[in-house]
Design a binder for these strands. Sequence first.
DNA 1: CGCTACATTGAGTTACCTCAAAAATTGTGG
DNA 2: CCACAATTTTTGAGGTAACTCAATGTAGCG
Lengths: 240, 240
Amino acid sequence: MISHNSCRKCEIREQALCSALKGHDANKLHQISYRQQLTKGKVILQGHKEPKWLAVIVSGVVKLVCTKCDGRQQIVGLQFPGDFVGRPFGNLGSLRVEAVTDVSLCCFSRQPFEEILRAYPDLEHSLLHRIYDELEVARQWIFTLGCLPARAKVATFLQLFVERVHKSTGIKNAKFSVDRQYDLPLSRTEIAEFLGMTIETVSREIGYLKSESVIETIGLRGLRVQDFDRLKALAECEET
Amino acid sequence: MISHNSCRKCEIREQALCSALKGHDANKLHQISYRQQLTKGKVILQGHKEPKWLAVIVSGVVKLVCTKCDGRQQIVGLQFPGDFVGRPFGNLGSLRVEAVTDVSLCCFSRQPFEEILRAYPDLEHSLLHRIYDELEVARQWIFTLGCLPARAKVATFLQLFVERVHKSTGIKNAKFSVDRQYDLPLSRTEIAEFLGMTIETVSREIGYLKSESVIETIGLRGLRVQDFDRLKALAECEET
DNA sequence: CGCTACATTGAGTTACCTCAAAAATTGTGG
DNA sequence: CCACAATTTTTGAGGTAACTCAATGTAGCG
């Protein structure tokens, strides 16, 4: 489903890349943008192919996946509303970008977008900032995967997910509820693929967190954090 | 030790960021640059502090380290000659940058460098490319750490190290020898810190590779790859 | 040549994995 | 609205890869 875009009432205008263009110039991106809705599970971009478009996530969550020949998968990144998807002036390497939930994207046709990037250094400057931030996040995960035991991995995942959601709560229309109750977009399988462990271990560790009243689950996807400080302490390996 | 710089005969001119400035403009960076030699183990940049300068690695190898409160460390990235170190318009977060070997850096004072970046969009554009590449490498490591067993991790490390060295062999003065013999810059401890495993396991896996005649070690740091295809196969988990 | 730092090897333990079964949640058709 | 099927998650028992601790071996340096 494709529809036209109106930046004025855009839910994520403030946090997205596009906000780097001010006043008169703001129109430039608007002219080449269009909205696209994709359902859960749809592949958004496939690495190695030159993509036709790049996009800003308006709503929903997206995962970056590496697939091994034997079928095992590793999620190497998650992206949330306001994040930029795709690599201008290149492709995504061996990555696949996939919708974790239903997503709404604000898409920009590739070539005109690249031209605008070159024409407006402020825009490219802003993109540089974002990519540096993503790099920092990626390195944070390297640390988590390399150093932490299963319990701390799960706690770290939940902690960072919750913090990331709060960052997005300024966003109108955000699906994330308040008062420490959240809608976990990832299945246990996906959490396992992200943390480099098995679904059983993820389940056991979540079970432990529940038994200790650190968190509470509501149905399969509902999550309430009862003791955020404790969660953080577990993420730092400060208790067992 | 600090000395002045002469871009003309720079060993890494072609592969480094500075090559983005052509002709007349090339001088701009030269004017604010100076060489610096640092010995093995020296801390180059400390995260969270606003750095006084940014740099291009001229020779040597550098590691990016996350330190956990309990003293355990994780190496989250390695950088080689031609790579850019530091984050302009920001700081490195919780990272520490440290010399793995003796290193020679071409440093740029922070503020003037940032001004030049803003003044020459081509330069910033080139930096954007590099950071995207680093992000891709970081995600590759997330995959390696999350998905692969110890043997494949070690094989992957050796493979990528060797490939990365070959990428630098165009560089004059490069310390890396030809005919598949290399000088491993990292100690076993550092390899373990990079791969998220113990020094004993690293040692055992390297022992296995030796026993299978995939590699050969010469002294503590010398490495010769006897069967690169086999190494790659092991990195892909295609045999045990 | 001896000292120190680093690397290897060995034995026993453990955290996480694998395989298998039970339970819970969600979706669907009567 | 309820019962049933499909899917996902949880729980259990047993195995194994990688860890820990300890001892031995080897490079490199003064």
